[in-house]
Amino acid sequence: MKHTISILVENNAGVLARISGLFARRGYNIHSLAVGVTDNDKISRITIVAEGSDYTLEQIEKQLNKLIDVIKVRSLPADKLLARELVLVKVCCKPAERSELIDIAEITTAKISDVSQETMTLELSGNQYNIATFEELLRPYKIIEIVRTGTVAMQKGSEGLRV
């Protein structure tokens, strides 16, 4: 089962290495990982999507909490999950094909971020499902390059994860 875990950490050197090291040596599988600073520049927020049983999830949370730099750990409930990824896709695009791609962008709410004589780069943020569908739609055009971030997520509703 997939779990989305939010971690608030002290923004210290080596903190990411400690966390990824913990996952590696205890055999927890990381599906995706995203890191960024919060509104307090001394605190970063890490979102990890990990695979494992409920026992594994409990162990991950407890072991993370033991790390000195970890301030808070929360496993986000699946039914209240607000999760987004960002993808950039550069595809082959002759001038004649542009209108087709503009249509796709409109339907999928993607943005056209860059255009050249031969290519077009589209940008979409969405959940995993949206992004997978988007990729499928672009596959008939030759994909030159694709880059996807890890999931960032928070809980829906009024509750917030803060220090």
């Binding site: 080596g14 290495a17 400690r18 090291g21 040596r25 000195i68």
Partner: peptide, 12 residues
């Protein structure tokens, strides 16, 4: 780095 799995905490 080398002692990361074996320390409670470390500082460089």
């Amino acid at each position: 780095g080398a002692t990361e799995p074996f320390v409670k905490h470390s500082y460089l």
